[in-house]
Each structure stands twice: as structure tokens, then as C-alpha cells.
Design a protein around this nucleic acid. Structure first.
Length: 420
RNA sequence: GGAGAGAUGGCUGAGCGGUUGAAAGCACCGGUCUUGAAAACCGGCAACGGGGCAACUCGUUCGUGAGUUCGAAUCUCACUCUCUCCGCCA
């Protein structure tokens, strides 16, 4: 949610920011509604003040048995006006909120300006593409060859974009998530949470998925939605609260399934388990003071990268451009892992600084030198487990159709070195 | 699923139609005392919004939303959540 004061004071800057994100300039319209709202409010409040005064007077008079029919008549008339103005004020409030809640965050000054993913910038790379003396296969070929990855059965159960894993591959997925959680909780300073996978509208509004992106979500019953990412319950842990400054920075993590309708992705990545309706992910969330959020984003990125480094998977980090960033973000780094079977880099993590965009929606503040200020929130994948599984399968495949178990995962496999 | 109780400031908790934005305690901040600290004592301490250069002033807020009333934390209705007991159950 945007700060209306910022728009009042910097309408041109605001419009430029929205333009960079592919939105129309709306500051003029917003400020018009805002002005109407405030004028209405002033009139309304004057009447309320008068009513309060008269009521007090009437109370006194009645207790003394004095006549006050004139005041009663006046107050009755005021009440009608109050009702009219209240309705108008509510209307303007709703209009304003409806516009503001659907506009994306203002990009950070270091976010490159651009239209599509083609304008994203390389931030850094790590490692090297592995060399194969055979043609590396794609993950689903390998998974199906070893009979541990089954899309047909999944389709019978649930339709397209689902997968069934079994035996060692299923165990590998579990090992990956354990490894990530262990690393983040012991070395990277995050506290682990077990969370609800069903949430209410309010939580999704808080992180920005609602009201604009309901098509991307699955519903569950009348009042619940399936979480599209643990960012939602993790970040909303601090909703509607006034945090003690001593509890900041707050770093939390959780391993959860994620559910996405992939409404806009029809026909995209249909083969394999790259883009599923359901996948698991270890999420990182930080709640910090505003001055710290930029460096916290770097720290979060490094936490995510540390997993890939330990797994010895080659990757590159991209700084997303204004046109490619998510709704709530002011700056985002994507980590793209190298997939030799696909001969391509693929997003495996996305780390974003949301500034105070989400904390305004959630009403999360902290007190600093007697002032209540909005916190900054950050979230990042650390990492997407399904895609990490894909990366391991493709990068660690052998010519005879086996998969080498990455060293850091062997402790979860009784020190075995290969999957088969 | 059945029966009952409740939701008040950062926390505990009083108030149940008219200076109650709300007693008291805790926490917190400032002061006195002390070599320093603690204790004790004194003082301060809600949020959000409108108007104003400002001092300041006005409004809203006692789970949420409607209603009754000149006036609602207090009365009515609906909803949400929490707790206790019974039943069922991983």
C-alpha cells in the first residue's frame, strides 16, 4: 500500500515510478479523490464536534430539568447531514483504497529500468557449467528412466502439472529440504516455523497477492486460500503488531508446500516438474528497520546462494528490471541455476526487498525514539526444493543413468554416494 | 456437533447510558536520592486521521460490522476469534 502523503508531495515521481512498472499515471485522479475525501472529512468533523457539544449541553440541561427542545431540533437536523457526509466519506475512502491497493511498489533507485526479463541485469555468477562426455538428459527423462518420477499417475490423481516421486527420489527431495533448513537455522541465523497452509484474505492482502491476483491462487472452502508461498504466513506473523526494536532484525524460515494455479502460464513448461500446481519450498523472511533493508537483501541473497554453493551448482544472479519485478517488491534478485539437460538457466530463488509496502498493508510497526514507524519486510526462496531436485538430477547425472548424491546430502543417505 | 463464558491501552485489569481516552497495577521514559546500581519517592507515558506556519485544535478508535439514543466501552442484532465442559477424532 502506498503512502498517500508521498503521493501528495511527489506526484510526478510517483507517476514516473508507476510508468516504469507498466502502469498508467494515476496521481491526478488519486489526489482528486483524496482532496474530496479530506474536504468531506473536514465538514463531517465540524458537524460531529457540534453534535458532541450539543449532546453534552442536553445532558446537563436534562439533569437540571431545563428546556432544550431547540437543541434537540438542531441535533436532529445535524444527524441527517452527518449521515450523508459519512456515506460520501466512505465512498471516497473505498475508491482511494481500491486504486492504491492495486498499484505495485515503487522501484528502488538501484533497480534497473526495463520492460521485460530481457532487461534484467547480470549481478554476479558463481561456479562453472559442468562438462559432460555424453549428452546430458533432462530431469524428467532421467526420473522416468529410473522409474521414480511419474507424471501419468499424477495426472490420474490430480490432472496436469502434478508429479509423483517415489523411493530414492522422494527421499532426495526430503534430504534437500532438511539440508536447507539445517543450514539456515544453524549457520544463517533464521528461526524455523511450522505454519498453516490455509490462510484468510487478510493475510494475502497483507503480502500483496490480494486483491489483484486472486486468479493465481487456489481456494479452499468458503474462507480460505492455499498459500502460494510461505512468504504469506511467515511475513504475516508480524501483522497488526508493534514490534519491540530489540526483536529486529527478525529472520524466520519455513518449509512448506506452495500451491499456484499458474493461470497465465498455459502451455508454458508443460513437460517435467519445473512448473507445478504444487511444489515445496524453503522460504526466508526478514523483518528489519528501514535503514537496514538494503544490506539485509544482500545478506538474504547470500543465504540463498550458500545452499547452491554447498551443493556445488553453477548459478547466476540477476537483478530484475522494473518491468519484471513482482507486485510488492522494490528490488529483486533472481538466482538462476544452470540446468545442463535443458541447456538453460532457470530461476531457483527470488529475493526481494519490499520496503514498507507490505508492512503498511499489514500494519506492522516498531517504536524508535518515541515514534511508531513501519518496518521493512524482505522475502526470498532459500530455495525452491523441486527445482533444486531438478538441478541436482541434471547436474549430477552420470552416463550410465545414475545420479551422484552431492556430498552435503550424503549424511541424509547413510553416506551412500549414488542414488541407485 | 451440544452447553456455557469472554474479547477494554505494550501487558494485567476496573468500568456496564452523560468531563471515561478510559481507574489501578506492571512495563517504559525523565527526575530526586546514591560513588554507581537497586529500592523508595516525584513526574510523564495510546494510536490513527482532519485543520493550522506554529502554539494548538477537532474527529475517530474499548474484537469487527450494523442498529437504538440528543449522547454508547456501556443497550440491541449479526459476524469473527478465544476459553471451559460434554461428544467425536488424527
Amino acid at each position: 500500500m502506498h503512502d498517500i502523503n508521498f503521493i501528495r508531495e511527489n506526484p510526478i515521481q510517483f507517476d514516473n515510478a508507476m510508468k516504469q512498472r507498466g502502469e498508467n499515471p494515476l496521481s491526478k485522479k488519486i489526489l482528486e479523490i483524496d482532496l474530496k475525501k479530506r474536504n468531506t472529512q473536514t465538514l463531517l468533523q465540524n458537524l460531529l464536534a457540534e453534535r458532541n457539544e450539543l449532546s453534552k449541553k442536553i445532558g446537563e440541561f436534562k439533569s437540571k430539568n431545563k428546556d432544550c427542545t431547540d437543541d434537540l431540533k438542531r441535533v436532529e437536523k445535524i444527524k441527517l447531514e452527518i449521515n450523508t457526509l459519512k456515506e460520501l466519506e466512505n465512498l471516497k475512502n473505498d475508491e482511494l483504497k481500491s486504486i492504491l491497493s492495486r498499484l505495485p511498489n515503487i522501484p528502488h533507485e538501484t533497480t534497473p529500468i526495463g520492460i521485460s526479463e530481457n532487461d534484467n541485469q547480470l549481478y554476479r555468477e558463481w561456479g562453472q557449467k559442468p562438462q559432460f562426455d555424453f549428452k546430458p538428459k533432462q530431469h524428467f527423462q532421467i526420473g522416468e528412466d529410473i522409474n521414480m518420477m511419474n507424471f501419468e499417475i499424477a495426472a490420474k490423481l490430480s490432472g496436469s502439472r502434478f508429479v509423483v516421486l517415489k523411493n530414492k527420489l522422494s527421499k532426495l527431495e526430503r534430504a534437500i529440504s532438511n539440508f536447507m533448513l539445517d543450514k539456515h537455522t544453524t549457520e544463517n541465523g533464521y528461526s524455523e516455523f511450522s505454519l498453516p497452509y490455509l490462510v484468510k484474505d487478510d493475510a494475502l492482502y497483507g503480502t500483496g497477492q490480494l486483491p489483484k491476483f486472486s486468479e493465481d491462487l487456489f481456494t479452499a472452502g468458503e474462507n480460505h486460500w492455499l498459500i502460494p508461498t510461505a512468504e504469506v504466513p511467515l511475513t504475516n506473523l508480524v501483522r497488526e503488531s508493534n514490534l519491540n526494536i530489540n526483536s529486529l532484525p527478525m529472520r524466520v524460515t519455513s518449509y512448506t508446500p506452495c500451491f499456484r494455479s499458474e493461470a497465465g502460464a498455459a502451455g508454458k513448461d508443460t513437460r517435467g516438474m519445473l512448473r507445478q500446481h504444487q511444489f515445496t519450498k524453503v522460504e526466508l523472511v526478514s523483518i528489519v528497520e528501514p535503514e537496514q533493508s538494503n544490506q539485509e537483501l544482500e545478506r538474504m541473497l547470500e543465504s540463498a546462494e550458500s545452499i547452491l554453493k554447498d551443493l556445488n551448482l553453477h548459478y547466476r544472479v540477476m537483478t530484475l528490471c522494473t518491468g519484471d519485478m513482482g507486485f510488492a517488491a522494490q528490488k529483486t534478485y533472481d538466482i538462476e541455476v544452470w540446468l545442463p539437460g535443458e541447456n538453460n538457466y532457470r530461476e531457483i530463488s527470488s529475493c526481494s526487498n519490499c520496503g514498507d509496502f507490505q508492512s503498511r498493508r499489514m500494519n506492522t510497526k516498531y517504536k524508535k525514539s518515541d515514534k511508531n514507524l513501519f518496518v521493512h519486510t524482505l522475502n526470498g526462496s532459500g530455495l525452491a526444493v523441486g527445482r533444486t531436485l531438478i538441478a541436482i538430477i541434471e547436474n549430477y547425472q552420470t552416463s550410465d543413468g545414475n545420479i551422484i548424491i552431492p556430498e552435503v546430502l550424503r549424511k541424509y543417505f547413510n553416506n551412500e554416494t549414488t542414488l541407485l
